[in-house]
Design a protein around this nucleic acid. Structure first.
Length: 219
DNA sequence: ACCCAGGCGTTCT
DNA sequence: AGAACGCATGGG
C-alpha cells in the first residue's frame, strides 16, 4: 500500500513542525526571490535582495527602469547574474505594463490566465511560476521541484512523474487548500535537504517503512 | 579539490 | 520527448 499524499503531510508536519517558510516583506520581493533562487542557495539570494533593497530597487517601477549593469551588480551573489538580471527586469516590466506595477492589481486576473502569462516570461518556468502564484499571490497552485519528484519515486511512485502530473496529483490530494500547498512544498524541501538528498539517510527517517526498498536507490 | 544549491533555455539526438 | 550543457556565486 503506497503512502497517501494527505498522510504524507501529517507525517512531515509531525516530524518537522510547520513554519512559515518563504521569507519576504512584500509579494514583489517574494516573486523576485522565486527567480533569484533558481539553482541557488537561499543564503545567496538574501545577499542579492538586501543589495536590491539598499539600491531602492524593490519597487516594480524602479526595477523596470533600472540600468541592467546596476541590476547585475546588485544580484551578483545569487549567481547566473547576467541571465537573472534580465529575468527580474522582464518580470518587473511585465508587472508594470500588464498590471500597473502592482501585485495587488495582479490578483484581479484568474489563476490559469496568470500562469499562462508568467510562463511566457523569459526565465520563468513551471516551478518559478507556481512559486509566484502560491507564495506571492496565495493562489492554489502547487509547486513541484526536483525534490518532490525524487521523493515520490522513492516512495514507490513509478508513473506520471512529469511536472504537470505530479502537480495535479498533489492538488487533488490536498483539495485545493492553499495553506496545505504551502506547507507541503516547504516540508518536502526541508525533509529532502535533511534526509533524502542526493544520497538518502534512511536511519531515523520519519517516512521509514514507506519506501519500498530503502537500501536500493539507484536513481 | 570537489560537490551542492528551492531552474531555465537552448541545442543536440 | 528526453538528455546534455551553460549559466556563476558562495558554503560545506
Amino acid at each position: 500500500m503506497r503512502l497517501r499524499l494527505s498522510r504524507l503531510l501529517d507525517l512531515l508536519e509531525r516530524a518537522y513542525g510547520s513554519s512559515d517558510w518563504w521569507p519576504g516583506n512584500s509579494p514583489f520581493e517574494i516573486a523576485l526571490g522565486a527567480i533569484l533562487t533558481q539553482r541557488t542557495s537561499w543564503r545567496n539570494v538574501e545577499y542579492a535582495i538586501a543589495e536590491l533593497e539598499a539600491q531602492g530597487l524593490l519597487e516594480p517601477e524602479a526595477m523596470a527602469s533600472a540600468d541592467m549593469r546596476v541590476l547585475e551588480a546588485a544580484i551578483r551573489p545569487s549567481g547566473f547574474y547576467h541571465q537573472k538580471a534580465a529575468y527580474i527586469s522582464a518580470f518587473a516590466n511585465y508587472l508594470t505594463t500588464r498590471h500597473g506595477g502592482d501585485m495587488k492589481q495582479m490578483r484581479e486576473t484568474e489563476t490559469t490566465e496568470l500562469r499562462r502569462e508568467l510562463l511566457e516570461l523569459h526565465g520563468v518556468g513551471p516551478e518559478t511560476a507556481d512559486s509566484i502564484l502560491l507564495y506571492a499571490l496565495g493562489r492554489p497552485s502547487f509547486v513541484v521541484d526536483a525534490y518532490t519528484i525524487r521523493l515520490l519515486r522513492r516512495l514507490g511512485f513509478r508513473e506520471d512523474l512529469d511536472y504537470e502530473s505530479v502537480k495535479r496529483r498533489f492538488e487533488v490530494a490536498l483539495k485545493g487548500d492553499v495553506e496545505k500547498f504551502k506547507r507541503m512544498h516547504a516540508l518536502i524541501v526541508i525533509h529532502c535537504k535533511e534526509r533524502c538528498s542526493a544520497r538518502p539517510n534512511c536511519l531515523g527517517c520519519p517516512l521509514s517503512g514507506n519506501c519500498p526498498s530503502e537500501r536500493e536507490y539507484e536513481e
